[in-house]
């Protein structure tokens, strides 16, 4: 058994500071285990949100040594324990207390996205036919567990606070799942260009880097959406053709 030091953010909307805690760590432990141990041993009022401990519920998002991570999927063996391990809440959303943030903005912003609008049924019994290869592409987006680590690391939300103008990577993934769906007929490119602010994304790929589900957010969701917006808003030849066709 070795002893490790953890600096955990303690505070609320009024402010706060790092609390320093030492605890014994053993093989196989993850950061969330250490936080629970500290909570049990010496910080009984430490607020931390968690649920599945299996990287599937997306509840225990935090910043471990400055990088957004799921605490339950971050092994202590991957961290240098010779120095204190810093754990702080995600920065892109308002703190409630300690490691718990209010991420409800994401659900409010999600409501702005036009819902799935399937084409008319293909068969008389009201059912549709889809080719597997057409839905394969959007399956990747359905892996999202809504941990909002991508929202946290995105500098447009994190550093520039543009929550009113920009919906963030998670919601672009959601939009892409709808927009690229083979049955969907809704057009969201106007919203993407204006209200959703896809133009604010400057392709840092940080969202892809932190995604615990390995969704290729930038290349497979955001850039294809940007290209669709180019089709409708910036490509002069396509705009001319549409005009000539009376579109």
């Amino acid at each position: 058994m070795a002893t490790a030091t953890f600096k955990i953010w303690r505070g609320d909307t009024e402010g706060g500071e790092y609390g320093e805690y030492q605890t014994e760590v053993s093989e196989g432990m993850v950061v969330l285990d250490a936080v629970h141990q500290i909570q049990a041993e010496r910080a009984h009022d430490l607020a931390v949100r968690w649920n599945c401990k299996a990287g599937k519920c997306g509840s225990c998002s935090a910043e471990v040594n400055g990088m957004p991570k799921l605490m339950c999927m971050t092994r202590l063996s991957d961290i240098n324990l010779n120095e204190p391990v810093t754990i702080q809440p995600v920065k892109a959303f308002p703190i409630i207390r300690d490691l718990v943030c209010d991420v409800s903005w994401n659900f409010r912003a999600k409501k702005k996205i036009k819902p799935f609008k399937p084409r008319e049924a293909d068969a008389a019994d009201g059912t549709w036919r889809m080719a597997q290869e057409d839905v394969d592409r959007v399956q990747e987006f359905r892996k999202c567990i809504e941990c909002f680590l991508c929202q946290d690391v995105c500098h447009v939300l994190r550093d520039h606070d543009l929550h009113e103008q920009f919906i963030g990577p998670r919601l672009f993934v959601y939009t892409a799942a709808l927009e690229m769906h083979p049955l969907d007929e809704e057009d969201r490119t106007g919203d993407l260009a204006a209200e959703f602010g896809v133009g604010y994304c400057n392709i840092t790929k940080c969202c892809t880097k932190v995604c615990p589900e390995d969704i290729t957010i930038t290349d497979n969701a955001i850039i294809p959406l940007k290209e669709r917006v180019v089709d409708t808003h910036y490509d002069p030849i396509r705009m001319l053709v549409r005009k000539l066709r009376g579109g």
Partner: peptide
Amino acid sequence: MSNGAFALKRAGFGVTARR
């Protein structure tokens, strides 16, 4: 939305907890 109440917000240039 303003997160001004969050004391950890808006780090200066190059400021990070990354190791």
